[in-house]
Nucleic acid binder design. Structure first.
Lengths: 257, 257
DNA sequence: CGGGCTTGGTTGTATATACAGGCTAGTGCA
DNA sequence: TGCACTAGCCTGTATATACAACCAAGCCCG
């Protein structure tokens, strides 16, 4: 039912994206090769090549010369959405990751949570409260709500072994993500679970993620201001990124005089 | 002097980017057409087409069928880096923007600033300290350092009329940007200039920007935690973005119980 | 003088073809 | 049995060619 007026390479792209979004093609699955698309879709190989190459640029697939084309796995897919897995981040730094699960339950959605998740009145949501630790030191308090029918087996998961965000990504590829970042003074409940004192601010990240075109999860991520920072480095495609700023300069948060 | 091993479309791209970065091609200037590249560079039109098409995707040029290819102007270029202008953001919300310039001077670079800007010992930098206000209320304290020879006329600018970041973008297209976001308790100097009390945390954004392949500016941006938030909404290309989260839900920063 | 048409330049797309290089699996030889 | 080599598949790139759509400028004709 693709529009007739669209270019054929665009139709090819949309067909493949549709298969990925619908779940027919899972992460790491093999995508039809250029020659298979030539035969099946009645296009030239250059047209199939353009479609797959653009999907590569957009982060949907990875290509390996001589092997084939594959749906990007979760780690690579996170690049598109810039949604990161805190456990991977910690292990990439060579530190040990651990988690404490404080809550894992089904509950009635409050009015605010219903609005964030676009859920109807009276619906239930799963609520997970987990502290993520780096070398045993709390670094994130995750207060997450998940739409019930998106992930029915939420209560059976062991969130000390897989983070909620990694688990959600595995259920279905994430389509959209929304972030809001604020600096706050945390309440007593947050302070106790993060092990910080009354004077320490928190970096609060509010995150909503979409799948199948609707919000499926909403999370409040509290980070101790003294132990956490968000980083980003933007460069045009094809450019070599420069070295990141050093820790010494990071410490320079104070205004002189 | 381009490397021989690179694909020819990539060499073409780098040649054109080089002309843009060097200033030979100014914004709105016409870029050689595909056929001109075919004759001048001895490539096929498909190869020239690919180079120009990818430059379009990367935001360097705009193409109009039947007319030609043109270097994108500054406003469009900033989209590539996702670097935002706070004055534009405020006016987009329908509020009035104003600025107070506290400092605008040349000074010796401290060791930390020299390292961030990769400057040699003994070099001077420009230092600008500006408070940005929304409807008269301070919303950002900008503490910025600029490499001297990148912008020699820094002391002649009126930063109540144009923000430093907008001014820098106008000198040369930005190639790279690095951000670090932290939650901090500000010192007295910051508190006084932002008009906040001792209990209020700040969202601190450290930003370095590159042009011509080197760092040209480093800024510390302090924002009152109660009046400012960073937002981001990521969706794959071609996807319709959903409605942003509502202010009501944003306010829900507290952990229940 | 003015309006419609033609012409040439430009981008956008599609195809057929060709060669290079990486990888796998299977064949065949020692 | 074990190793080397080869055939085949896949991606990556490059070229020549073709047609469609768009636009501007100029020409022609009324």
């Amino acid at each position: 039912m693709t529009a007739q007026g669209k270019p054929r390479y665009q139709q090819l792209k949309e067909m493949i994206i549709g298969r990925i979004m619908s779940g027919e093609l899972q992460p790491r699955d093999r995508v039809p090769s250029e020659n298979e698309l030539v035969n099946a879709m009645n296009v030239s190989r250059m047209t199939a090549n353009r479609a797959l190459r653009e999907l590569t640029d957009e982060g949907y697939v990875d290509r390996v010369a001589g092997i084939g084309t594959f749906v990007t796995d979760l780690k690579a897919a996170s690049h598109v959405l810039e949604v990161r897995n805190i456990a991977d981040e910690i292990e990439r730094r060579g530190h040990t990751y651990s988690a404490i699960v404080h809550k894992q339950e089904r509950q009635h959605a409050s009015a605010e949570i219903r609005e964030a998740l676009q859920a109807v009145a009276g619906s239930d949501v799963f609520h997970v409260l987990v502290v993520h630790q780096e070398n045993g030191v709390p670094i994130q308090l995750e207060d997450r709500y998940v739409v019930e029918d998106f992930a029915p087996d939420c209560l059976q998961q062991d969130f000390t072994k897989i983070t909620p965000s990694a688990w959600l990504s595995g259920i279905s590829p994430l389509q959209e993500a929304e972030h809001i970042v604020r600096a706050t003074m945390p309440g007593k409940a947050v302070r106790e679970r993060l092990g910080i004192d009354e004077q320490e601010p928190c970096l609060l990240v509010l995150r909503r993620t979409w799948a199948h075109g609707r919000p499926v999860s909403f999370a409040r991520l509290h980070h101790p201001g003294s132990r956490f920072e968000l980083t980003g480095h933007y460069a045009p495609p094809g450019t070599k990124k420069s070295n990141p700023i050093t820790a010494d300069v990071i410490e320079l948060g104070k205004l002189q005089q």
